[in-house]
Simulated assay, not measured.
Amino acid sequence: MITIDNVTVGYGKAGFITAVDNVSLTINENEILGIAGESGSGKSTLMRAVYGDFSTGLRIKSGTVTGHFTNAHNGQLIEEPSSEFKKLWWDQITYIPQGSMSVLNPLMKVEKQVIDGLPKRERRGSRADLRRRIAEFLAGFGLEENVLDAYPHQLSGGMRQRVLVAIAAFVNPRLILADEPTTALDVVVQKKILLMMVEIQRRLRNTLVLVSHDMGVHYQITDRLVIMYKGKIVESGPTAEIFANPQHDYTKNLIASLPRLHGRRSADVAGELA
């Protein structure tokens, strides 16, 4: 689906600051891929490069990011470089950023923000029909229709984050990129949102890329895990194998940092409850 080939990504032109250094990675169809690492390891920068978001001064210094998508209208394979990914936004590719209050417009009701984010093909029919379809979709996330009439500040953090997840899933994308989607949420709400994301991926059979510094989150839901450190990938493989037999010292430290409950990692306990 996505091929990242020897990519170096950073910011600035005259004084280029490298954030991702010579990374190669394949993102496959129908998988939940986790990207882990501490703050500043390059996780979010890599996701912006994959999404094709160069609005913050980000640029690819070397290497290529290429997407391979099937056109929903004629079944033909589309191959695009990341510089052209913008035309696939909210169609083939959607993005769940961290920080719902910084993403949702505080001066605009939720209904308008949902509709404005939809591609034209999803705006078919009357406004009332579109609202009905959106309300039915939100109900699957435990959100009542009156959420559409609310401003973001009138919703809890968990509700706002569920709105963002619902917006990203509504268009049936082939790829959902989630950048720390449960940061700052309490563990109960976090768990609900993660389980929703897993259910979406299973139902749509699409690809979910989950960026998180929380190794417990990766343990619970990802199929494959990539560990980043100082802008490089230092380890990758099936999540279960990495947790069972980590090879890199940094990975070992990340896993060892998980708190333990009665001699077991909290991730083990959480996994049993999933």
Rank of each mutant, 00 (worst) to 15 (best):
S83R: 15
I60E: 02
V110C: 09
L130K: 10
V65F: 03
E145G: 12
M108I: 12
I115F: 03
T94L: 05
I60M: 04
I60R: 01
L155P: 06
G75K: 12
D91I: 02
L107I: 12
W90R: 15
D129C: 09
I134L: 01
Q113W: 08
P97H: 02
M101A: 15
I96Y: 07
S62R: 14
R133G: 08
L138T: 03
P97Y: 12
R133Q: 11
A135P: 04
R123K: 12
R133I: 00
R127C: 10
L107W: 14
R127K: 12
R127M: 13
K61A: 10
P81L: 07
R132I: 15
L88S: 10
V114Y: 05
R127G: 10
D116S: 10
D91V: 07
R131S: 09
Q161V: 03
L118T: 01
V65R: 07
I96C: 04
R160L: 08
P81D: 05
S82L: 09
N71T: 01
S100R: 02
G117K: 09
I60P: 10
T66I: 14
P97F: 06
D149I: 00
N105F: 11
Q76E: 15
N105D: 14
E144L: 10
H68T: 13
F85P: 14
F69G: 01
K120V: 13
T64F: 05
L88I: 11
T64A: 10
F85R: 03
G117H: 06
V165E: 07
Q113V: 07
I60A: 09
S62L: 15
E84I: 13
K86A: 15
H68C: 11
H68L: 11
N146C: 06
H73K: 15
A128Y: 02
H73W: 12
I93T: 02
G117N: 12
Q92N: 13
S156Q: 02
V114L: 00
G142K: 02
R121F: 14
E80V: 15
A139M: 09
S62V: 08
M108C: 04
R124H: 15
L164D: 05
I93V: 09
